[in-house]
Simulated assay, not measured.
Amino acid sequence: METYRERVWPAPWIAVIALLAVPASLLTFAPVSIVAGGVVGGVLAAGVMLAAVLSAPTIVVADGMLRAGSARVPLSLIGGTAVARGAEARRMRGPELDARAFLVLRPDVDPVLRVDLVDPDDPVPYWVLSTRRPEQLAAAIRGTTETA
């Protein structure tokens, strides 16, 4: 039974940044052809948006497992969770990050959830997941762990 599902879509401002490829291409191609600049800019903007949408990871808590992107871990091997926002989230994603941690990060999503693992055979000490609803994800992990 699925208790949590989130597709971490790109933020709307990513589209604005992608559209900046159009005027940049127009300026670059202006000496050759304005039409070519518009076409190249449109293709670049569409490509950036397509890549952002296709790379959006899915986080699911279901059937005793936590799945984030292509990785999965049994809920029984999760020791705890910690929600971070703002400066604390930046530290968790940067200076305080263990190089062995598993990451599913989106640069345009501020909140993160740290998921501590208790598997002695796994070299990964914890996961750091970008999520727009970290409290709900943590509750789904705790709720399923307690009933499993």
Rank of each mutant, 00 (worst) to 15 (best):
Ala24Trp: 08
Gly42Ala: 03
Val40Met: 09
Val35Asn: 03
Val39Phe: 07
Val35Trp: 15
Gly38Ser: 09
Gly41Val: 07
Leu19Ser: 09
Leu19Pro: 04
Val16Ile: 12
Ala30Arg: 14
Ala15Thr: 03
Trp9Ser: 03
Ala24Arg: 12
Leu27Tyr: 15
Ile17Pro: 02
Gly37Glu: 05
Pro10Thr: 02
Ala11Gly: 00
Trp9Ala: 03
Thr28Ile: 15
Pro12His: 00
Trp13Gly: 00
Ile14Met: 05
Trp9Leu: 04
Val22Glu: 05
Trp9Cys: 00
Leu26Gln: 07
Ile34Phe: 15
Ile14Tyr: 03
Trp13Thr: 01
Ala21Gly: 05
Ala36Asp: 12
Leu20Asn: 10
Val16Leu: 15
Trp13Val: 02
Ala11Phe: 00
Ala36Arg: 07
Val39His: 08
Gly42Asp: 02
Pro31Ser: 14
Phe29Met: 12
Pro12Lys: 04
Leu27Asn: 13
Trp13Asn: 00
Gly42Leu: 09
Gly37Phe: 07
Ser33Arg: 12
Ile17Ser: 07
Trp13Asp: 02
Ala24Val: 14
Ala11Cys: 00
Val32Gly: 03
Ala24Asn: 06
Pro23Glu: 12
Val35Arg: 13
Ile17Arg: 01
Pro10Lys: 04
Ala15Tyr: 05
Leu26His: 08
Val39Leu: 15
Val39Cys: 07
Ala18Phe: 14
Pro12Val: 01
Ala21Met: 11
Ile17Tyr: 14
